[in-house]
């Protein structure tokens, strides 16, 4: 597949006098996990619904899988909304089969693949049970199975991990990664930033209807990198020529992180200079040296505070 999975071009949407989405543009490529971020009410759901042709944009254009979302293309997308449900009084496998046939699958294929997926999700024994007899976590997994059953080329999934325990989160995560590997584009909207850091290739952050961040996850984090390096080891960092000030990091990102220091660089200095200065001083022992890159969580908060006029 050469074309983009999703192409959003200068799209705006207004509800009455409220501008929910204001001139946004982004692309989603096949074979990537694309994170959609943004605070509550920022316009994420509106954007997703416009991609799915549930809502019409006031201006701009959206292409899905190389064109307008028609019946044929609908068969190649899988959507899992944030608030989701299933027919309650129907056996699990039957619900899955029905929903998959609505995506153009044959009943027999859908059953076969449905059973496979249920086994994979350790739900093989509930295939004949009614949905209402399943626990909430099980229902979540079934809903996820429905979303990927027909092997779509584009998956749009809203908060995939909400309400899941760590074990199930891992199972779903693996399945999502598999979808990416087979060339599927996965658009994932979530508030769990560490999941984005771990899984997503690129991200799009929307705030107050406008594009706040857009690009590869690594680039975005580097863009927000501090003029500082993190150093762990033993030695005195305070009198290095390129270092302006030193902050100690006692509670690092993980409990296993040893006490380190955050060295803020003087303007014009480079990290390489700092490293050579550290090495030049006898007696210094360095176990970790890296550019100080903030977590997505920090970046998210900074962006929101900046846009909302707090920061």
């Amino acid at each position: 597949m050469s074309e983009n999975a999703v192409s959003v071009r200068n799209v705006s949407k207004t509800y009455g006098s409220f501008r929910a989405v204001d001139d946004i543009a982004f692309d989603v490529f096949p074979g990537e996990i694309f994170a959609m971020l943004g605070p509550n009410g920022a316009g994420k759901s509106t954007t997703i619904r416009m991609i799915l042709d549930i809502l019409k944009p006031d201006s701009g254009s959206i292409d899905v899988l190389g064109g307008k979302l028609d019946d044929a293309r609908k068969n190649h997308i899988g959507y899992l909304p944030e608030e989701r449900g299933l027919y309650r009084n129907v056996p699990v496998l039957e619900v899955m089969t029905y929903l998959a046939t609505l995506k153009g699958m044959s009943s027999a294929d859908a059953r076969c693949r449905g059973l496979e997926l249920l086994e994979r999700l350790e739900l093989g024994d509930v295939a004949k049970k009614k949905v209402s007899e399943l626990s909430k976590g099980m229902q979540q997994k079934v809903q996820f199975a429905v979303t990927i059953l027909h092997e779509p080329d584009l998956i749009i999934i809203d908060e995939p991990f909400s309400g899941l325990d760590p074990v199930n989160t891992l199972v779903i995560k693996e399945l999502l990664m598999e979808q990416r590997t087979r060339g599927c584009a996965v658009v994932m909207s979530t508030h769990q930033m560490y999941q984005v850091e771990e899984m997503a290739n690129r991200l799009f952050m929307i705030n107050q209807g406008r594009t706040a961040l857009y690009g590869p996850v690594r680039d975005v984090r580097e863009q927000y990198a501090l003029p500082a390096v993190i150093v762990e080891g033993t030695g005195d960092w305070r009198n290095l020529p390129s270092v302006e000030r030193v902050e100690s990091i006692s509670d690092g990102e993980g409990t296993e992180a040893r006490p380190g220091a955050l060295l803020y660089l003087r303007p014009g200095s480079t990290t390489t200079e700092v490293l050579s200065q550290i090495v030049a001083q006898p007696g210094n022992q360095v176990t970790r040296f890296e550019q100080a890159v903030p977590s997505l969580n920090d970046i998210f908060i900074r962006v929101v505070e900046r846009d909302n006029g707090h920061g």
């Binding site: 799915l52 042709d53 549930i54 019946d71 609908k74 068969n75 997308i77 959507y79 899992l80 909304p81 608030e83 989701r84 449900g85 299933l86 027919y87 309650r88 929903l99 609505l102 995506k103 429905v146």
Partner: peptide
């Protein structure tokens, strides 16, 4: 009402009109 209240309809309209 069932499809609407269970929010299934949001999934359904991405399959059918």
């Amino acid at each position: 009402v069932e499809e609407k209240s269970s929010r299934l309809v949001e999934m359904l309209v991405t399959s059918v009109s």
